[in-house]
């Protein structure tokens, strides 16, 4: 008996020597288990992310073995910590450098809404400059919550249609953020 756990196959038709399913689902399954996160850690939540990366919580179990510090190779932008207005252009730049498909996770209250820092120097949530897929609450969130957020992104990835990124709706979304 192997102790390796296998992912369940997507819905489909199987018979003698064949298994038929839609390409969407196969690709979604593959993608969701090899998300390369770009840890954009600025403050306290970044320290909790370090704990998530450590041996105890081990984010690698979810296919995120390799944190990709280069935006070009990353699938998931994890924004962790306060984003000041001085930092906002940098976040946007990093997002623009990522290749489609890309997902964004706002970890912690500051990245989601500005948190307790409703001040002149803090951006009130990163969704003012880039579209966000998953918000993780907490100040800072526990590593379990960050993992839960990652699993939510996996869920999105698994069920995303291959055409979504070409759809008009998506183009409108990007346009509303002035992203071409």
């Amino acid at each position: 008996m192997s102790s390796v756990k296998m992912v369940e196959a997507p819905d489909g038709y199987s018979g003698a020597g064949f298994f038929a399913t839609s390409l969407d689902q196969v690709i979604g399954m593959a993608r969701s288990h090899s998300l390369w996160p770009l840890p954009f850690a600025t403050s306290c939540c970044g320290i909790e992310f370090m704990a998530t990366m450590g041996a105890h919580y081990d984010i690698s179990r979810f296919g995120s073995e390799r944190p990709s510090f280069s935006p070009r190779q990353a699938d998931l932008l994890m924004v962790m910590g306060t984003i000041a207005k001085k930092m906002a252009p940098v976040v946007k730049q990093v997002y623009l450098q990522m290749a489609e498909p890309r997902w964004v996770m706002a970890v912690g209250a500051c990245a989601s809404s500005g948190g307790i820092f409703d001040t002149y120097s803090v951006l009130q949530g990163i969704d003012r400059i880039i579209p966000v897929d998953v918000y993780v609450p907490g100040c800072p969130p526990r590593p379990e919550q960050i993992l839960e957020g990652l699993m939510q992104v996996q869920e999105l990835t698994r069920n995303e249609s291959l055409r979504r990124r070409n759809s008009e709706e998506y183009q409108h979304l990007l346009e509303s953020y002035k992203i071409q």
């Binding site: 500005g114 409703d118 001040t119 002149y120 803090v122 009130q124 003012r128």
Partner: peptide, 8 residues
């Protein structure tokens, strides 16, 4: 000068 962010 105010503390709060004016865009909220």
């Amino acid at each position: 000068y105010p503390m709060e962010d004016a865009t909220r």
